[in-house]
Simulated assay, not measured.
Amino acid sequence: MNVSSWGMIIENPLIQRKETEREEKFSPATPSNWKLLLSESHSMVKVCSPYEVDTKLLSLIHLPVKESRDYYSLTDIVANGHNLDGRIINVLAAVRSVGEPKYFTTSDRRKGQRCEVKLFDETEPSFTMTCWDNESILLAQSWMSRETVIFASDVRINFNKFQNCMAATVISKTIITTNPDTPEANILLNYIRENKETNVADEIDSYLKESINVNTIVDVYTVKQLKEKALRSEGKADPFYGILYAYISTLNIDDETTKVVRNRCSSCGYIVNEASNTCTICNKDSSRLKSLFLSFDLLVDLTDHTGTLHSCSLTGSIAEETLGCTTNEFLAMTNEQRTKLKWQFLLERSKIYLKLILSHRARAGLKVSILSCKLADPTEASRNLAGQGHT
């Protein structure tokens, strides 16, 4: 059920004129100069289904609260960069994918959740918007990848230094209109329908490759220091990043029982369930499954003189760059060739850029993704063996 289709009946509200200067920082902006105040003793709010709502009112659900031309394109946001850092603006965009809600507990024991939505338009293939409150996360779960357009009024724009890009955040002022009925939104909707199956190959990289400038990662760790930092970070949801000089100690690319290459959905980039042949993230209906592409999906162990990080994720184009071959080239190899390839990396010290996230589902409570892995310069590696990121 689309959560935005429900209506409500409000009884005995107090009607007041808005005090714009006092309220514009936190309250959602609306075209009206009036506001409703509800009291527990006199007012009542009743939620009603779409069938009980006047059909004339239902059409208002698809009208943004801001002027339909008052928005930034995604390329405008990217181009303006730091000039928009911290600004509150409006965005019109299509939904590329909706991530699963991620649950976390803060250092003071408060529970929370976040959900990352990937947006796109005619000008930009991928842009991140993060939802933190239950209402916007619930709304986002109703959006269909490459079929939904949203007008998000009053989202906050910030520069994400870890991903080296601009990103949007849903805040208390934000009002999101799903599939707005405006000329601008209809043009964008026609664009995504006409281009749904084209240029998939060009976008594969953006699905799987972390959009993080590894040059911004400077802290060097040992395995022991990374595990200690993870323990100190318990309760925090944000990822942290680091450089590790280590050996790949497990690389099962020549084991026939291990699945090294998997099918991914071209719409959202997630691994397709092989038993049902469906993408459970963006489309549960197998008859409407989008096209697929092959991608490396490896779990490797990283070892230095202080310990081992188990089951580190090495996927997509990062795996291709590391191994020096494409998925098709790898599939054409014999077992002997794959074994030879494996021994080019085993027990050879590499310089590895990592992204680490605390996760109760992951082994040892730590999910580790490899952002870059190349054989290390011996002099540079010996100079950094003690690590420094823990200071």
Rank of each mutant, 00 (worst) to 15 (best):
S4N: 12
I9N: 08
I9Q: 12
I15H: 03
E21F: 03
R22Y: 09
K25R: 10
T30S: 13
P31R: 04
N33C: 13
W34F: 09
L36A: 02
L37F: 14
L37H: 14
S43A: 01
V53M: 02
T55E: 15
K56T: 14
L57W: 02
L60A: 12
L60M: 03
R69C: 13
D70A: 14
D70H: 09
S73V: 05
H82E: 12
N83F: 08
N83S: 05
L84T: 05
I88E: 02
N90H: 13
N90W: 05
L92K: 00
A93D: 01
A94Y: 01
S97T: 12
S97Y: 01
P101H: 04
P101V: 04
K102P: 01
T105W: 03
T105L: 00
T106K: 00
T106M: 00
R110D: 07
Q113M: 14
E122D: 01
P125S: 05
P125Q: 02
E135S: 09
Q141I: 03
R146C: 11
E147T: 05
F151A: 00
S153H: 07
V155Y: 02
R156M: 13
R156N: 05
N158E: 11
F162A: 14
C165I: 11
C165Q: 15
M166V: 07
A167G: 05
A168G: 02
T169R: 04
S172N: 08
K173R: 15
I176C: 10
T182N: 06
I192S: 01
R193D: 06
E197K: 07
A201Q: 15
L208W: 08
S211C: 08
I217A: 08
V218L: 14
D219I: 00
V220S: 06
V223H: 06
K224N: 10
Q225Y: 00
L226F: 07
K227M: 12
K227Y: 09
K229I: 01
K229Y: 03
R232P: 04
R232F: 08
G235W: 07
D238P: 06
G242D: 01
L244D: 04
Y245A: 07
N252M: 12
I253G: 03
E256T: 10
T258S: 09
T258C: 09
V260Q: 11
R262E: 10
G269V: 01
E274I: 11
S276Q: 12
I281Q: 12
N283A: 05
L289Y: 02
S295N: 04
L298W: 10
L298C: 15
D304P: 07
H310V: 10
I318D: 08
A319H: 14
E320I: 02
T327A: 09
F330M: 06
L331D: 04
E336W: 02
E336M: 06
Q337A: 14
L341A: 06
Q344G: 15
S359K: 11
H360C: 11
R361I: 08
R361A: 10
L371Q: 00
L371C: 02
S372I: 10
K374T: 12
P378Y: 01
S382V: 06
L385P: 00
G389N: 01
T391W: 08
